[in-house]
Amino acid sequence: MSFRVPRRTIAAFLGPAVAALAIVGIAPLVYAVWKSLHYFNLTKLAQQRFVGLENYGAVLTDPVFWQAMGRTALLFLIAVPIQIALGLLIALVLHRPGLTFWKTLTRLSLVLPMATTYAVVGLLAQVMLNQKYGVINQMLGWIGVDAINFIGDPTNAFIAVVMWDIWQWTPFVALVLLAGLSTVPPEIEEAATLETRSNWTVLRHVQLPFLIPSLVAVLILRTADTLKLFDMPFTMTRGGPGSATEFIAVLIERVGNRQFDIGMAAAQSVIMLAITIVLARLYIRLFYREVR
């Protein structure tokens, strides 16, 4: 039940927050759209002029932009299924009864990676993956694998970003799925485990329907966060070598901040935002209809 209160009261309570968020969240967005219609380069301010949709045309036909998009999609397509598989495994282990103390401890350790400053995650990667001084290559050496040049080789650098993304976000996926598992009514789960000895059957027919909202959430959030991904690859490789780890947000930062072409960067970010919105809506439509 809610109260009916005078409009003035509502405005007084909501006004400040709405105004603040409009100023910091919407005004810059509008300004970005405006700038995206201009040729605007910080080093050539004299040539600033209105160009209409020219920047958008340039971005949409720019192979570099689509390569960065493709790279971002590839990262998502490789990392997220692994995160979901590992996360589900971890969630199922933690969901089982018994070993309560150790499970609490494990759950606490799972919280650490996702809270870690993303920039530091990239720095850690630099240190741990170094070909000569890195501990990961040392460990690979123990099982007889030659030292790998993770940061310097294009393919390996991409793999390194995937690995680090998996490290940071698998625990997150695991905890979201664990929360989903706890929504399964215990009596249904117990009845099912009495019926069948197969964990797989229980997962597929009893637990999975309850996990769908969590899985949709994971997909939406991982999509948004992969499109946002900047700190970790930036501190780790600066998008390199070449453009091997230049994901979409890193590309936009380079165009705007290192090439000073703010009009172009604005057009790129508006297109990226449109893609984010379309994807989020698509997910909700595809998955939530089945649940209803």
């Binding site: 910091v24 969240g25 970005a32 900047f230 947000a249 930062e253 901040n257 935002l273 984010t276 989020a280």
Partner: peptide, 12 residues
Amino acid sequence: FVSPVVLAFPVF
């Protein structure tokens, strides 16, 4: 869901 990179340059 809004990437900070969208807002960063106009705000700059």
